[in-house]
Amino acid sequence: MSYFEFISQYGERILSGTLITIILTIIAAALAVSIALIAGLMRLSPNRFVRSVAAVYVEIFRGTSLLVQLYWIFFVLPLFGFTLEKFTAGFIAVGLNLGAYGSELVRGAILSVARGQWEAALALNMSGVQRMRRIILPQALLIMLPPWGNLMIELLKSTALVALIAVADLTFQAKQINSSTFLSAQSFGTALIIYYVVARFLITPSMRWLERFMARKMGEA
């Protein structure tokens, strides 16, 4: 079977898998960003209890494997009465996992905003919330965008693991096609190339654009 024949026969399945992967990536990214922001801020809270809760979350999700987390959420949570649909379990596991890494970026970026900015905001008599929201976070955002670009690629790659709980994403489709056709190079190779294209020509350029856009907006370009 030529590669052309392979594509015409299985192209549709590969495309639908790609779509699932992209949707999963977007939803998981939204979850990861929100959780990273919340956990990152919590880790800087003056309240020790709040700090500890966030630290425990980060250590658990960074200290174990995504696959373990995914299986736990999918197979063990139902025993506690929380049965999640496999797609939901997938994006929650990926979002929570990457959110833990992201929270470290948020925390690091906030801490790296020059101390003088805090002092100037205090000298203007701004409240703690105002200082964070209006002065520190916008600057931290600019600092953390480049590492978030890398994290987004990691997130895209992480979504491949949901194939193991039978979410019909790109990896799952490649695996299915492989087991029915034994055309391993074609099925897995095509999937690898698609991931690469999405990462290199979709995610990376969008993150670069976002960096430039934010930098311009903040008058630093």
Partner: peptide, 14 residues
């Protein structure tokens, strides 16, 4: 009270 700093500390995003 108001204060001016050695290194200005203007908010760069404004």
């Amino acid at each position: 009270i108001g204060m001016c700093f050695q290194h200005f500390h203007l908010f760069p995003h404004m």
